[in-house]
Design a protein around this nucleic acid. Sequence first.
DNA 1: TGGTCCCGCCATTGT
DNA 2: ACAATGGCGGGACCA
Length: 866
Amino acid sequence: MSVTAKRWKMTSTLLDVQLNLEINRSSLTAAHEKKEVVFAEPHTRSSASGRSQEAQKVMGPLSTPTKGPSESAGGEPWTPTSNLKMLISAASPEIRNREKEKNIAEETENSSQDTEHGEEAERLQLSRKEKSLGLLCHKFLARYPDYPNPAVNNDICLDDVAVELNVERRRIYDIMNVLESLNMVSRLAKNRYTWHGRAQLAHTLARLQREGEKHHYSQQIQQIRQRPAEDVLEMEGEEKENEDTDGEITLREPGFSETSVDAKGASRKDKSLRVMSQKFVMLFLVSSPRVVSLENAARILIGEDQVVDQDKSKFKTKIRRLYDISNVLSSLKLIKKVHVTEERGRKPAFKWTGPENLSLQGLQVEASYCPRPLESRSSVDNCAKNLFCSPSTKRGFTRHHSLVKLAKSIQDDRRKINSAPSSPVKITSDVVTGSFYTSKMDHLAEICKMQLDQQAVNVQKQSDLKEAAHMQQKSSVPSPIPPAMTPGLEALCPQTVQLSIAPPPCCSFVPVLVPQAVYVSHTPVRPRPVARPLPSSTAVRSMTFESPRGANTKASPASVTVTGQRRRPGYEPASPALKRTCLESLEKSPAKIKRTETNSKSLSPKLCEILQARLKDRRGALNSSRASARALHLEPEFKQKKPHNNPDTMEHSMELQYFLETEERDERLQNQTTTTVQESTGHTNTETLIPTGYLIPISQQPLLGFKDTPTSIGETNKTPTYIYRTPTAGSIAPSPQEFTPSPLPVHHPTHRVSPNPSILNFTLQNLALIHNTHSATHTAPEQPSPVPCTYTHAHTPLQTHGMIFIKPVSPLTLISLQQPTLTTPKCGSAPQQCFFHTPVSTMVTPTPSKSLYIPQRKLDVSSEEH
DNA sequence: TGGTCCCGCCATTGT
DNA sequence: ACAATGGCGGGACCA
């Protein structure tokens, strides 16, 4: 009985999901274009699903094998949603049928006992369509919002999904592979993916389009269309070779194509569904009538393969795969099935129904993106567990004699980390490459836009409005990327480019999990691709996690580790321990995350959004790289800790500073990466402080300096680039008003009104971190030793100088990207650039009076544990 | 009968 | 060694 009930529950859940799905789809479809996206809370859904999962679990292992029973089949009682279902089914024949069957099945199964049998029968009865990959994909998609709130945990657990959807894992892989190829998901770790939704889709498609053009797919298609099949094949084979190299644009690129590939020629990956999917999409994107017949697509794709024999079976297999891909793409509404009549007759084909004008959208982003082609971003890359961007890359390195050892050690570390069941999320290649940023940025941008649109209407607070106005003026709010901004930004962060280019290198420090983390740790400057060892990242993580709260011992160790690693990209002994630590921390993370969220909530969504949007634009301009700053950006948790004397804190701050310094250095290129923490502390400029998170000397000047120049000092000023200034101003003396969003006004009462705190934070994060401190430092010449001051003065100093206390990033944050550190949907909405609005002042000691919220970029934290 | 594509074996790859 | 991935193609289902 109980079982039946549970099952029933599950079934209903599924149905609901589907319904949602349908609804979402339709609404989304419409909405998409508009960009008005409703942010469905992933969590929300997930929570629902989670329940179901739990239920299932309780029920027992619905192991993959048993797939059938509960799935759609289970007779599902007509629930309140039945009406909705009816409507849906009316719209969808398939659904209708399914419903019928379900009903039938249900009838069949009346008794609990029979249930299983009934289900079995039902399952058998289920038409193929019901089990189709397309439908499954629909169900899957229904579980996640098209534009996930970055703040939320968007992790996808394959096992859970498989269970919930009642399908074999194998099927899930098919879906994930395709989605991954479009960057809609990225693999974090074993069994775990992160949902990106369509946030990056446009960019991805744009890239694919370019790639496709690059490979002359359009020409091939033309030729194929005009020639008889056989000829085509041959021809294609020839062409292929050319393409081959790049052909695989995506996945292969990095390492793949290398000779290293197995003797076979093409490694598995070459034939991977991901690659096929991307190529397939490319075909659509480059062909004038955006219609591609499966046959032609198969021919072209086969041609690319090194495979010699293109026998029928091969062709047939290819076609089959294309069907699989098509089903998923169809579910995504990117293509729809049609028929084309060619010389050879009427053939099945697909028509592109996805976004057009990709180039426009994509280009902007791309510019900012890393140089790498799709590959880097490609899902594969994302998946890449390695430091090296993509798996393929990894391989390549590994095989490289010189690199082998180094790579090996790194990989080992990584493996350990990733492999763990609860394995921390690995950094996506994107992250490493910087593409992550990009993607994130994109994501944010979209979200921001949407939010902005919505909010625009709502904009409540005057202050907010003001700011918005500012922003618009300066940055041309409406248009995501203000041209003016871009240049400046770039100038500020030259590194960006580097990062993107040599993502791996950056990684060294980067915590695996969080992309942002990368930013933080990264030392873009150093090009040590190989070195990028996870370990460092690990170290970082551990540091992050542990240190925050108390004087826990962890902090210190972490710091130590970090230091060592930093110095040596090569990596260190401590790593294992660190890893463990990280893992542990991860496990614990959920709670922490929640806390964080809570804190973050305080932010004003609007501001956040605006900021995010700006940020996004900016970022786009800059290129992703600048993440580092973010990492530094604080976590709410830390804030509590004061900069005080607490040794731990100190260390923590030190570490942060170190990071910051590193970044700065990189940016500047002046310093070497190797500096030790202490050194850094000593020397670091004020900016460093910021990252440290503890105290941020906000010399308005400095901030202003970033962007503009010294002149900007006055907060009041109308800093042209509001972004930059904002921070400064805000930091300096945020007027309560401005800070409106944040409850706590910043210290200086006296100061003039500063821009919105959020802005401030934003600026700080971006500029300061990114930009660097030096500017700040310079700006605040007055302050003798920025760093020291920070520590020492902790409380008072801050206020005095208008320093803002920023809490260091919470460990958790670093850890999981997806995690919604910020609960607030809106704020969080921006995935990449989520800001944590930490009540700076709050944390800061004494200044009780005003707390400034600084929007911090949130490090995506994914709390794995659901 | 051709189009579809589910299903799950089993090779790879990762842990 | 075991688990996670995912290539692959037999053969069933559909129209």
